[in-house]
Structure formats: C-alpha cells, structure tokens
C-alpha cells in the first residue's frame, strides 16, 4: 500500500515538475521535449488510477501522434523568427508575465479550495459505488468491459466522434494545402 503511494508521489512529482519546466523554459524545443516527460508521467498516473487502457492510449496517441505532429510543425516553420520571438520575450520578461502568474496562482487557489471543500472521497454516489462493489480493483480486467460499453452504451458519442475526426481530417488537409490553388 505504501509502495503505491510512493509511486504516486514520484509520478506526480515528475508530471508537475516537467510541466512547470515546460512552462518556464524559454527554449521552444526544450519545452516540447519536456512535455514528452509530462505525458509519460501522466500515463503512469492513469495506471495508478487503474485505467490501463487509457494509459496505453495516452502513450500511443499523445506521445506517438500529437508530439510528433508538434515537432513537425516546429521544424516546418523557420528558425530565425522563433529566435527573434525568444529574444524579445527575454527582454520583457517581468512585465509580460506578472498578470499571467497572478491569474494562474489565483485560479490554483480557487481550485484547491473547491477540491478540499468538496471532499470528493465522501461524495454520496462514490460511497454508494463502494457499498455496491462497483469499484475497479487492481485485479479486475476492464478492457473487455470497455469494448462492450463502447459498442452498446456509448455508441452514439462514438459515432459522433468518428464524424468529427473525419471533419478534422478534411479540414486539416484543406487548411494546409498550397496557397495558390484556391
């Protein structure tokens, strides 16, 4: 039991520290690569929340797809303009960032207050789920249940998502074609 807590603290420390580094780093490439680490640590947190299928999907789609896409976009845009942005940013470092810092800090305070007041572990429906043994335990396998639910209970959102993916595919292809052909 304490081993799981230790793993949780390690994973959340890695996730938060790398997210903060990605937020504070001035170098774009470095913040993209540190974001890799954040996503992997979040996949570890999903495993600790007993959602192994979501964790594997996270690794496949986020780490394998989205980050490669971001790296592509970065490499297709030219380096000089990025450097200009970075240098100008470092001169205005204090003025531009104070409002963002205040906003983020106040939002964090509000969120933490809400979470501590809500006391999520003692919500009525969660107690009911625990009483009815409707809780995922470390020994139970959930993947077959997810598959069955995806094709029965959640069929409508599933189809809606597939149409939206098709629209995003067409839209991305339309947006990134050459300028002259329109």
């Amino acid at each position: 039991m304490s081993m799981i807590r230790l793993m949780f603290y390690v994973m959340s420390f890695i996730a938060i520290a790398s997210a903060l580094y990605a937020a504070l780093s001035k170098n774009l490439v470095r913040s993209i690569f540190v974001f890799f680490v954040t996503l992997f640590a979040l996949a570890g947190l999903y495993v600790l929340a007993l959602a192994d299928f979501v964790a594997v999907t996270q690794v496949v789609i986020y780490v394998g797809g989205i980050l490669v896409l971001i790296l592509f976009a970065f490499m297709l845009s030219r380096r000089e303009t990025l450097n200009v942005i970075q240098q100008r940013k470092s001169t205005f470092i204090n003025m531009a960032k104070v409002p963002a810092l205040i906003l983020a800090a106040l939002f964090l305070v509000v969120l933490v207050n809400v979470i501590l007041k809500a006391d999520a572990d003692n919500l009525p429906w969660i107690k009911e789920a625990i009483a009815q043994k409707n809780v995922i335990t470390p020994t139970s396998s959930t993947i077959d249940n997810i598959g069955v639910n995806l094709m029965t209970t959640y069929l409508l959102p599933f189809e809606a998502i597939s149409i939206l993916l098709l629209m995003a595919l067409v839209g991305a292809a339309h947006l990134s074609r050459k300028e002259g052909s329109a």
Binding site: L50, A51, V54, T57, L69, N134, Y154, I161
Partner: peptide, 27 residues
C-alpha cells in the same frame, strides 16, 4: 472513472477526450 466498474463512463469519455485532443491539435 474508478468508481464506475459496470459502465466505465469515466474511462470511455477519457478516451473520447484523447481522440478529440488529437483532432484539435491537427487542425
């Protein structure tokens, strides 16, 4: 989603959110 073993609502919608994030990022 850990507290919904029968219907897996949390995990299924987490999957949907991941797919949506991929589509959003491409666009």
């Amino acid at each position: 989603g850990r507290f919904d073993k029968l219907k897996n609502s949390g995990q299924v919608f987490a999957l949907f959110a991941i797919v949506l994030a991929a589509a959003t990022t491409a666009v």
